[in-house]
Design a protein around this nucleic acid. Structure first.
Length: 531
RNA sequence: GAUCGCGUAGCUCAGCCGGUAGAGCAAGCGCCUUUUAAGCGCUAGGUCCUGGGUUCGAGUCCCAGCGCGAUCACCA
């Protein structure tokens, strides 16, 4: 017997017990534990909200009175609910069963009295396993300890869980299992489902925001013959029928700009990009980006848009958090925790130019070629002699100057060097700088924007220049996109362009420090098939 | 790709200087009509990630590998 079979056999003792139970339910009770459609269900949150204290007290008083005088009538004004959920706690107390069930909206207790349900239902309820999915119906009341619950009068199992569940108090802690078996993580750790519900709501709000601003949502190719729009290494794939090498896109940029040429005034896309690079707490190989282009705008148009967008999302989250704490209005300042930080999203966000930030850290102008070279050498920068002055500046900036930004304050860093911004329009009279900014929050690069370059000749020159320095490996995927140049020759209106890392935004909005915690199924190495 | 850390029951974790593998939860069988990680009694559950090595003896020490995590590199 190989190790995997051995492992399965060990676990199968627990599975076998559940299978045995399943069999007994079918054969002895005539119950089919894999149910069908159920009408009229409400969420556990809705059911909890139906609790009526006075109806509950009247019913209880009536019940007590009936004990003393059996002919007394019990008035029951409690509202009835039909609910479904997964069992996450189960306690049997002789002729009473208490269980906690869970759905996306929260947890709710189901209480069963042997006297109130039929025999089969009570047998099932008393032998229920953690993980089973059940439907219960009855009045919404409370127990002696004040716990709101549905006092079930009907009770059915609608899905029998066969696998042993995680520990009920600690949940599923193993990071690897949490990502590989997200479906278990989601019910074992309620925080997980809340994070992804929040993600969904935030993305929906972003779409509404963009629509209000007059933007059209579009979908452009993810499989591209030429991977353009960013410098990252792409994933390579192949189309059999066309016998054609294709790349998963690293950015939608060049396609979205073609749409401006075609006449769409404001377009955006929220979708996946794929970059064949390292993985860490801020990078997953596939990630979601919002990219937006506004004809006749510029990077300042996009700055205002981004500031409003991020502010509005943060306000929504912060108000919601405040509401949860108390019902007395909301905070005026939208602040959200992120790890040890308390990030303040009040408008306006901080602004500082790339050059100012550089000078603040190094004490001299970034245009000072001698000093830049000197410091770069001292920092033991690789190939320092070969690099262009502005690439040295950029390397120093990334490594040191970025740290000058207050992580608790969203900060726009403006006027990036042109040398590292090939798709950006340079400043008039100061061609070494470009109309480009990046937004930093909590040490993360959250957004990147520029005034788009729409001069076809300058764009062609920049592409050609960039390709000249490329090695063989890079040339394989970064070829000149001649059709894009053609599109610019047809004529693209001036425009502001923007990219926002949605996963990172969700991290900030939900206080998750790892990108894997805001991606439902982060990339994992395949599990061993052998042994 | 580099460095560091982790990998023990289904889950959450102990396991000291190398000396017969431990707990809680979950599971099985009992008892219990107001529990809240319910409680009490009994039972069962292990290729200590894999493969080598050192040793009389390895969960523990060494080497290699696999997986996960963290940091760095890469990501104009």
């Amino acid at each position: 017997m190989n190790p995997k079979e051995q492992h399965l056999q060990d676990e199968s003792v627990l599975i076998a017990a559940r299978r045995e139970k399943l069999k007994r339910w079918r054969e002895e009770l005539g119950v089919e534990p894999y149910g069908r459609r159920v009408e009229g269900l409400i969420s556990l949150g809705e059911a909890r909200a139906m609790f009526d204290q006075s109806a509950h007290e009247k019913y209880k008083a009536g019940h007590e009175a009936q004990k003393a005088n059996p002919s007394a009538k019990v008035i029951d004004h409690r509202k009835r609910a039909r609910v479904a959920g997964r069992c996450i706690q189960h306690r049997l107390m002789g002729k009473l069963v208490f269980m906690q069930i869970r759905d996306w909206s929260g947890d709710l207790q189901i209480s069963l009295s042997k006297a109130a349900v039929d025999e089969t239902a009570f047998k099932i309820a008393s032998k229920l396993d953690y993980g089973d999915i059940v439907v219960a119906e009855g009045p919404v009341g409370a127990t002696n300890t004040g716990e709101v619950c549905v006092w079930a009068e009907r009770f059915e199992v609608h899905s029998k869980s066969l696998t042993p569940p995680p520990e009920k108090f600690h949940g599923l802690q193993d990071e690897e299992l949490r990502y590989r078996q997200r479906y278990v993580d989601m019910y074992a750790n309620p925080q997980t489902i809340q994070t992804f519900a929040a993600r969904s709501q935030i993305v929906a709000s972003i779409r509404k925001f963009m629509e209000r601003r007059g933007y059209l949502e579009v979908e452009t190719p993810m499989m591209q013959p030429i991977a353009g729009g960013a410098a990252a290494r792409p994933f390579v794939t192949h189309h059999n029928a066309m016998d054609m090498e294709l790349f998963l896109r690293v950015a939608p940029e060049l396609y979205l700009k073609r749409l401006l040429v075609g006449g769409l005034p404001r377009v955006y896309e929220i979708n996946r990009n794929f970059r064949n690079e390292g993985i860490d707490r801020q990078h997953n190989p596939e990630f979601t980006m919002l990219e937006a282009y506004e004809a006749f705008g510029d990077c300042w148009t996009m700055l205002e848009l981004t500031e409003s967008l991020v502010h509005e999302m943060a306000r929504g989250r912060s108000d919601e958090a405040t509401k949860r704490r108390s019902d007395e209005g909301v905070h005026s300042r939208p602040t959200l925790p992120f790890g040890e930080l308390m990030v303040d999203y009040a408008k306006p966000f901080a602004r500082i130019s790339y050059g100012e930030l550089f000078k603040k850290h190094f004490g001299f102008e970034m245009s000072d070629e001698k000093k830049v070279l000197e410091v770069a050498k001292r920092a033991h920068m690789e190939n320092v002699e070969k690099l262009d002055h502005w690439l040295r500046v950029s390397a120093l900036f990334d490594e040191h100057a970025e740290r000058e930004i207050d992580p608790a304050k969203p900060t726009f860093v403006t006027d990036f060097p042109s040398a590292i911004s090939p798709l950006t329009r340079p400043h008039e009279g100061k061609p070494e700088l470009s109309y480009r900014w990046e937004l930093f929050i909590a040490g993360m690069e959250l957004a990147n924007s520029y005034t788009e370059l729409n001069d076809p000749d300058v764009q062609l020159a920049k592409f050609t220049e960039q390709l000249r320095g490329a090695d063989e490996e890079v040339k394989r995927f970064r070829t000149l996109d001649e059709d894009f140049i053609h599109a610019l020759r047809v004529g693209m209106p001036p425009a502001g362009g923007l990219g926002v890392g949605i996963d990172r935004l969700i991290m900030l909005m939900t206080n998750n420090l790892s990108i894997r915690d805001v991606i439902l199924f982060p990339l994992m190495r395949g599990e061993k098939s052998e042994t």
